[in-house]
Design a protein around this nucleic acid. Structure first.
Lengths: 104, 104
DNA sequence: TTACATTTGACACTTATTGTCAAGTAAATT
DNA sequence: AATTTACTTGACAATAAGTGTCAAATGTAA
């Protein structure tokens, strides 16, 4: 089970890029990127978008990994975690069909 | 599709309790509880626990509603919402089987 | 040693969360 | 009509969480 951090580090090394270089593209200190790769800090959505760009990763897929990481992390300690996901699924369906989409 | 706020308000009124009384049990100002019931503010886990107590609601069930609300709200605007939930399910399974449970 | 990449931790800045308080509605009693 | 009671609203304060910088420490290779 790969974390977003692991995906990023692996791909960065494959491409032979330095923390410094990737961090510059994200416009952050390399210290943060180092921590993100080691799951010591969570990336933001902006980070994810820019990481997908420079690391030539699929943006949607990386976003899915990012968000599922976040959700899994916040409910994994609950015994009702699975039920939470099931109910959340229903609610998402409901929201998506009833919501007036206000996207661009 | 009932929100946590609706569940709480309905039950509170059924029991004939006042905002003031329930809020006192949660040790917060009734203004917050009023907002929680109208989904203008989100409750905390502590609120949920104490609400289940005083309103004689099933704690786990209320917690499920609370957490699924939160998750649904934070991903409903993504088209990949369903995939996120599927991947999160896998990650939760992984975490729960590999995690050293540090609960009491 | 020097040079370079990464890691670490202390700290600062910003934004979100959680709360109080007092004034405002609204509906029921006196 | 004036009071009382329950609830709502919005301005604000306190605190917690998130996001970042910087410089020193560590590791590794030339």
């Amino acid at each position: 089970m790969e974390t977003v951090g692991q995906i990023i580090r692996t791909k960065r090394e494959t491409l032979g890029l330095l923390l410094r270089q990737v961090a510059a593209h994200l416009d952050i200190d390399q210290a943060i990127l180092s921590k993100i790769e080691r799951n010591e800090r969570k990336p933001t959505k902006t980070h994810i978008t820019k990481l997908a760009e420079i690391l030539k990763l699929d943006k949607d897929e990386l976003m899915v990994q990012f968000m599922s990481d976040k959700i899994a992390y916040e409910i994994a300690d609950e015994d009702c975690a699975n039920r939470v996901l099931k109910v959340a699924e229903k609610k998402v369906k409901y929201l998506q069909s009833h919501l007036i989409k206000t996207k661009l």
